[in-house]
């Protein structure tokens, strides 16, 4: 039985991951903002076979609460095997272009909150000397594009942060996984027209659990996004600037 901590546990991808661990009979601790939805998920995971499920209401932007809530989690679970950071919002790009306040607040939710959480988590996991810290970033972090560079910038910052943390924890036996999903059909993206590139959260969740168990460092989900982003990253600038990406 593994011990799993999931932050942003009401997100579709996180919930799908939790269901896979529940089915394996693992013990799970969930953190999220909405009490009602959290309670439903706790119940559901118990029915699906989780050894035990704990939860606490928690806002990632309440930085002062980070230490105490993580202390509670580690007190309860003991040695944590997997931590998954799945919280995030999808910014309204045009709103962010007209309001520095909105842009900063999106950076705060999507990057700074994780920087704070990961700093505490890295120390705790380093002490334990095993386990995996997995963070959902995005393919959007691979290159700033006019359609969503605020979101992209936050995710790029996280990816760089994770790269360094991986370097630091490598010799300590802790794996740091950067998960970069492409388009995923979730409540966060409900207003988008869906095409062939879109994946279901269940599919992405399977990829996450696989990447964690095989101790991957960076994973694009579904796999074909590695190819797509390879092209996007390497597009010569004089062409890139003329695209509508």
């Amino acid at each position: 039985m593994k011990k799993i901590l999931i932050i942003g546990a009401t997100s579709s991808i996180a919930e799908s991951v939790a269901r896979l661990y529940a089915k394996q009979g693992d013990e799970i601790y969930l953190l999220a903002r909405n009490q009602g939805r959290l309670d439903k998920i706790v119940n559901d995971l118990r029915v699906r076979g989780a050894a035990d499920v704990h939860s606490a209401v928690f806002d990632v932007c309440d930085f002062d609460a980070h230490v105490s809530i993580l202390d509670d989690v580690f007190d309860r679970l003991g040695e944590v095997d997997v931590v998954l950071l799945a919280h995030g919002t999808l910014p309204d790009q045009s709103l962010c272009e007209n309001s520095a306040e909105s842009a900063l607040s999106e950076i705060k939710v999507n990057a700074l909150s994780s920087v704070s959480l990961l700093t505490h988590l890295a120390n705790k996991m380093e002490y334990v000397g095993k386990g995996t810290i997995a963070v959902i970033t995005s393919v959007a972090g691979d290159r700033g594009r006019k359609s969503n560079y605020v979101y992209g910038a936050a995710k790029a910052m996280l990816s760089a942060f994770l790269e360094g943390m991986r370097h630091r924890l490598f010799s300590k036996g802790v794996v740091v996984l950067d998960i970069r999903p492409g388009f995923v059909d979730t409540p966060m993206t409900k207003d988008f027209a869906k095409g062939v590139l879109w994946a279901k959260p269940e599919k992405v969740a399977e990829g996450i659990v696989r990447a964690i168990s095989t101790k991957k460092s960076v994973v694009y989900l579904p796999f074909f996004w590695a190819g797509i982003m390879g092209v996007v990253r390497n597009l010569p600038r004089f062409i890139f600037l003329r695209t509508s990406l």
Partner: peptide, 9 residues
């Protein structure tokens, strides 16, 4: 779609 939770079994 998102109302898909088991309550008890």
């Amino acid at each position: 779609l998102y109302l898909d939770h088991f309550r008890f079994f």
